[in-house]
Design a protein around this nucleic acid. Structure first.
Lengths: 158, 158
DNA sequence: CTTGGTGCAAACATTTTGCAGCACA
DNA sequence: TGTGCTGCAAAATGTTTGCACCAAG
């Protein structure tokens, strides 16, 4: 289901879809851009992925679902969404660009399960202060930070 | 100056070059690989860069200095060094893979200048402990972490 | 000598871009 | 109705690989 049309109030993602969609439309309008079905599809897919994804994940997912969205459009939309603050590039462990939903969800800090790929938000106490301190020491202005903590399931027989 | 030959005890990088070179040679030998002049050049360039670099930085630098090392060799050497733990990939802000010396130096945490793109390594005190604590609380095994702190030049008139 | 390494250029994978027709505002 | 958007495929990166000759051990 695309975002703009036929939205029903019973989806469990709606709490996030609704405002996100609005943010996106507002942003698009503010720069004279259009809210097209393709862009809605992309946003919808991103929301449903619920985690970190690559451009190709989106493309595969959309095509597997029979959506008619081209590679070029996925990349173009992703770029717009980055500028709009809807998605953000996250730290990549490997080669490709990876993104995550940046709106409505979470802080910027994550616990990444290396076994399975699940990602959850964390809020380590005092982290922001620590980062601000680093900046203060170097005489630069703190603008933000992002932390990934990597973990695996605890050992059983070890 | 390549690493293996003509080393003199007055260089200020030697304290790091020496053991690194040894580590590299040992590693190469352990897998039946050879210690070639090209590999020495690459290692030398990496040490002299003293920070985060991309493959192309190495290539440019080497070629600007008249070293005869090809792109392919730079990439191949970089891969070997990664496996050997001599360099590590670090978080990329843009598109390309970035590396830094992983031996004797620095961790994975960075201060990213949003104005200009400079990246430098930082070591916020207690960060690792904080991350380990997060893992402990969730009952997972800490495997590592990565932090990026974003900053801009301090305001002057604001 | 043998085995692995090098440079080159072609192959690759990912992301970007030019163009002609199409659809949103 | 006009401007921007789409898909396609070609171009543009950044990285890897095949091959013939060369060098380290």
């Amino acid at each position: 289901m695309a975002l703009g049309a036929n939205r029903r109030p019973d989806g469990d993602d709606l709490e996030i879809i609704e405002p996100l969609c609005a943010v996106f439309r507002r942003r698009l309008k503010s720069e004279g851009a259009k809210y097209t079905p393709e862009r809605a599809e992309v946003l919808d897919a991103i929301v449903r992925i619920e985690g970190i994804f690559e451009a190709e994940d989106l493309l595969e997912r959309l095509q597997a679902e029979g959506r008619r969205v081209s590679k070029a459009t996925v990349y173009r939309t992703l770029k717009i969404m980055q500028d709009a603050g809807i998605v953000q590039r996250v730290l990549s462990v490997g080669d490709q660009a990876r993104y995550q939903l940046a709106y409505g969800r979470a802080g910027t800090d994550q616990l990444v399960r290396l076994d399975g790929g699940r990602v959850e938000s964390i809020e380590p106490p005092g982290l922001k202060a620590l980062c601000e301190q680093v900046c203060a020491q170097r005489g630069v202005k703190y603008q933000g930070h992002r932390l990934q903590v990597f973990a695996t399931a605890p050992e059983r027989g070890g």
